[in-house]
Design a protein around this nucleic acid. Structure first.
Lengths: 239, 239
DNA sequence: GACATTAGTCGCTGAATGCGACTAATTACG
DNA sequence: CGTAATTAGTCGCATTCAGCGACTAATGTC
């Protein structure tokens, strides 16, 4: 991608201060969490911000996002998706004119790994409903990332990237409930799941304290005779 | 992280050659069309490219997209939506390292206006299935724009922006069919439309040559008791 | 051993979808 | 004229699908 700073005709578009910012999302316990880093600019109004950095010379913006996640978290992202570019006048902590936001889906292990670190670490996980103040552009990115999640939830296997490789259907349902923001009916959820051919059972069972043990499943999508059929719920009540 | 090779705090992110590019979409006759401009760089491999320009100093990226449309077409966009940022290694005609693609929904009048202009004009409309070669990044943007259209078609009033203020239901169905890329069943389409409370009839009728005259409708969405209900079709056959 | 707790399934009801077949109103053509 | 062709618009059936309560199953707690 060319920095043809040589002589002739055109030397490419105007140069703009551009940042890549990452909304890392995890669902460890019973709530959604995101990863923030300490403000690097001591004059910054807010004390926390999204992991962010400019893209380097020969780096793709998606590669940059992956690197930024690795720098802020011990665990790499299970999946990276672009959210949008933000080029309005909302303030960015590093003063970027334009920023590209990425959504990083993180396995629950990423949060547990961070818990072990010292509490004075450079980055920490926060519950989404209880975030510290962040710069306006970062707030817009977080909101935009959650909207994107809800919009794509029934098209892409987002929930599975927030779970360990093997999980119970109750765990899966809980993640879906966190993402769509309401309770789902158990029987309907499982029926929709079966129709979508997304999971297959393992022969393991987990007994988690009280109650009947649950069967473990793994993510195993099957393209069944071209019937791409997402997991759709319209208005499931409480279950 | 960051090239902090300088001395004091931080002086904002690295500057990157950034362009704003627009996929203008229209549905004048029985096919989808997009607007291309003549390649501005005489050494360019391709002779046509998407309307494109860097964002100016105090301009929002969306404002820049609106300006770019106005520069390439006499008619302004009926609606602008961001598609995505493209920052991979695919070639951009102006050598931009990162580009933000916008989708511009254009009324049919935009194409008729352009037909009147001289054939040697700086921009021209091309049928989507029969585009001249464009740079790889522009091709990716066009494909991405069409994917975005299909993904958002049942959430947002995209089809209406491609129609004149008043239209027949057959016209509306044709636009939907062009956008989703398959035929729809007439009765099911109208039923879904009615359930979504998106149109209201006018008292005008249009007789278009042979056949029974059709009633004209206008776009008039109603938030009916909180039932946000898009126009959903799963597998409508031919009608 | 009764009870609480969690997992998993069944089956009914009402709503939504796929689709063919119908009526309606106009032009084309002999 | 009158009949066919053409486009608009509606009806109603058969099937599928979503919402939901109620049930059984397997474990731990007291």
């Amino acid at each position: 991608m060319s920095d043809r700073n040589a002589a002739p005709p055109r030397q490419g578009p105007r140069r703009v201060a551009l940042s890549i910012d990452v909304v890392a999302l995890a669902a460890p316990g019973h709530r959604l969490m995101t990863l923030l880093t300490r403000a690097r600019d001591p004059r910054s109004k807010e004390r926390w911000e999204l992991p962010s950095d400019p893209a380097r010379g020969e780096e793709t913006i998606e590669e940059a996002a992956a690197r930024i996640v690795r720098a802020a978290s011990a665990t790499p992202a299970a999946q990276l998706e672009q959210v949008a570019a933000f080029g309005d006048r909302r303030r960015h902590p590093a003063g970027a004119e334009v920023s590209v936001a990425f959504l990083a889906l993180m396995p629950p292990a990423a949060v547990q790994a961070a818990q072990g670190a010292a509490s004075g670490a450079e980055s920490a996980w926060f519950a989404l409903e209880d975030l510290p103040p962040v710069a306006p552009r970062h707030r817009a990115m977080i909101d935009g990332a959650m909207s994107a999640v809800r919009a794509r939830l029934d098209q892409e296997p987002i929930a599975f990237r927030l779970l360990p490789p093997t999980f119970t259907l109750s765990q899966l349902q809980e993640v879906y409930e966190l993402l769509v923001g309401r309770r789902l009916h158990k029987a309907s959820f499982r029926r929709a799941l079966q129709a979508a051919w997304l999971v297959e059972p393992t022969d393991e069972w987990r007994s988690e304290g009280r109650g009947r043990p649950a069967q473990l499943f793994r993510f195993a999508p099957r393209r069944r005779r071209g019937n791409r059929r997402g997991v759709r719920f319209d208005g499931l009540g409480n279950g």
